[in-house]
Design a protein around this nucleic acid. Structure first.
Lengths: 380, 380
DNA sequence: CCATCTTCCTTCGAAATCGAAGATAAAGCG
DNA sequence: CGCTTTATCTTCGATTTCGAAGGAAGATGG
């Protein structure tokens, strides 16, 4: 399993390959339009990429009134990406080709509380298994990436003061993974990956807020089509103070954080206080679907609180859409109460074209996001 | 006063001229570094620009250990920009050269309540006067721009549902100005202009929130060095619900908006309820400086409320700095209580490198911002 | 004062890019 | 079916950009 040869695509070639890989273009003419290069230059570079074996011509697309475009695809033999989305108790792992299409995706149980070394070595072993079982012979691994359920410093690839990851604080995840693989390595917050993955399913929506409502509450922000990281902590909404009657202390030391009322973990706590046992946030959704009133009321309240926080952000960022993902996102009352709160309280100007919807990208969206970001690192 | 000849700078020339004009570079070597072009190409294009009379060489800069750079400047005869910042009762008007340096700035009384036609015609007349009095002979006008104290649709240059501009709703400001001048026209929200202007004074700070605390509360957002508009309404924080004991109705129809407690207008109202008369937000600042306890308490409360709103946005956007401008910004208790609220409640991760400071750009920052944005329109 | 270093700027042949014109392939239509 | 229209892709000479090498001008340090 070598894969040590770096992909050598410099300048315009890289840009074009990236555009095809990310699905922004699939013909020479489209490449010319999207990239801004002259059609003749595009033809030249594409010819080279085909000669190198990185691109392939694959049939023809549908005509729009003239000659049919010759469809371009990234070659299936160009390389593989190994990506993961690490959760508290489960991880999704997959292999993607360079255009981000999954060859195989698996969900496996794990436990991040075992600490970073154990977890990352487990992940590397899982990648090796996947490659052995599903990696086509001769196709090199080009990059490795993973999502982390906590803040990640974009420069160093370290985990920074995560709230539910004992032993991980300040651990150099990227460096550790880089020791296994002499390849580009991506480490990114899970909600950010989800946001990037979702963005692919929302063409024309350049400003997105992607909420990840699972056992925690995360949010990824797409501004102008690109992931907004700020100094690394951007997108955090879980420790915003909410308006409530009661007063609950959050683990961060402040009272009445959103997370303490509206996260999956908080809902499970509240249910267990009512004598209803749940083991995962998805169980809460199941209770709601079964019409258990306590669960529905709690979820509805969570949606209202999340919605009220979002009003501030919608007025401020004025996005094109709010996309709700995560394991709680399938609970219908959550979305509808978020919608109600946002539409009631936001400026009409900010909501007149605002969409509030659930995930379009499917369960692998975060993995696709990892693939998308990795591609940037892989294509020099 | 013709000025009808359009500035013809295509491609790389335009980029280079823009970089010099915006102060991002002032020598060929710096241009090469900043623009990413090869040094040789820069030399060629700069030579052309000098031949055209758009750039001039002006002395030499300070050495950094080697040969001194030959300093480049936009020629004073290259053109003028006429810019304004329209407020409710006053407007600042100025003429800038193409590098954004003011030739003359004046503040004049006006009244936007007279409606858009009257106000804009008054503005055009004022521009003509300024040009006559201070415009060097033979230097053509290249663009016209103005800030508006209300939301502006970026595409059409229309004012959209402003809260304190009777008669302006949906008025096509850009079109109306364009009828006077056959030139690029810029119409933009005043807080956004302030943000762009301030950004010039904060090199290295790519993500900024610029608060304009005057009789209203506005906010301009710089993401990745560029103004973030969203769908045109981005940056609005005035109608966020705040946590208070009492309950006040805002003009927008919702209770307890930030604006109803923390804007200059709200402070003036509250003071007049206490029997203290003020005519402008600046009078409130004067009262604070004179140590009038009622004024200080009100301003401090306003700062706390603004700060609490900012906590949400700081966690979410994770900016490099919060810059406070507007006529209230000189009130020391305002800044300190904003600081206190933000540092107390935000995530340490978000505040560890966060600066909270008052305007660096001076009173003409918004005009400079208008110049900066206009330049993009002027340089094809 | 002179050698050496650093930075700035220019020269010039090689390479990449452009743009206009034409070749190719299909849809639409009488 | 041939004709026009539309869109895609290629060819080729002109233009632009690059990069390596070198010259110019000043800093540094013996």
């Amino acid at each position: 399993m070598s894969g040590k040869e770096r992909l050598l695509v410099r300048g315009a070639q890289g840009d074009l390959l990236r555009l095809v890989a990310t699905g922004h273009a699939e013909s020479r003419a489209q490449l010319a339009r999207v990239s801004g290069l002259a059609a003749s230059s595009v033809s030249l570079r594409v010819e080279e990429l085909i000669d190198t074996g990185l691109l392939v011509e694959e049939g023809s697309g549908t005509s729009s009134g003239g000659r049919r475009p010759r469809r371009l695809r990234v070659s299936p033999t160009a390389g593989l990406l190994a990506v993961a989305d690490l959760g508290a108790h489960h991880a999704r792992l997959g292999l993607l080709d360079l255009s981000g299409v999954p060859l195989v995706v698996e969900e496996r149980a794990c436990d991040i509380a075992l600490g970073p070394e154990a977890t990352l070595d487990w992940m590397a072993a899982a990648f090796d298994e996947l490659l052995l079982a599903h990696g086509p012979a001769g196709v090199p691994l080009r990059g490795v990436g993973t999502g982390i359920p906590g803040p990640v410093d974009p420069g160093s690839g370290r985990v920074v003061s995560p709230s539910r990851m004992p032993g991980w604080n300040n651990f150099p995840v990227a460096e550790h993974l880089g020791a296994h693989y002499d390849l580009p390595v991506l480490v990114e917050n899970d909600a950010n990956l989800l946001a990037v993955g979702e963005a692919r399913s929302w063409p024309g929506f350049d400003n997105l807020m992607v909420l990840k409502a699972g056992s925690g509450i995360g949010c990824g922000v797409i501004v102008d089509g690109r992931l907004h990281r700020g100094r690394g902590a951007a997108g955090d909404i879980s420790h915003v103070r909410v308006r409530t009657d009661s007063s609950t202390m959050c683990s961060c030391g402040h009272p009445d954080c959103l997370e303490a009322y509206a996260s999956g973990a908080a809902l499970m706590d509240a249910l267990s206080g009512l004598g209803i046992a749940t083991r995962r946030p998805a169980d809460v959704v199941a209770l709601v679907e079964d019409g258990v009133p306590e669960a529905t009321a709690l979820v509805r309240n969570a949606g209202r609180l999340i919605g009220e926080v979002l009003t501030v952000l919608v007025n401020f960022l004025n996005p094109d859409a709010i996309v709700v993902g995560g394991s709680l996102s399938t609970a219908e009352p959550l979305i509808s109460s978020i919608r109600a709160a946002v539409y009631e309280r936001c400026l009409p100007l900010a909501t007149r074209d605002l969409e509030i919807a659930v995930t379009r990208g499917g369960p692998d969206a975060a993995l696709l996001g990892a693939g998308s970001l990795l591609l940037d690192a892989v294509l020099s």
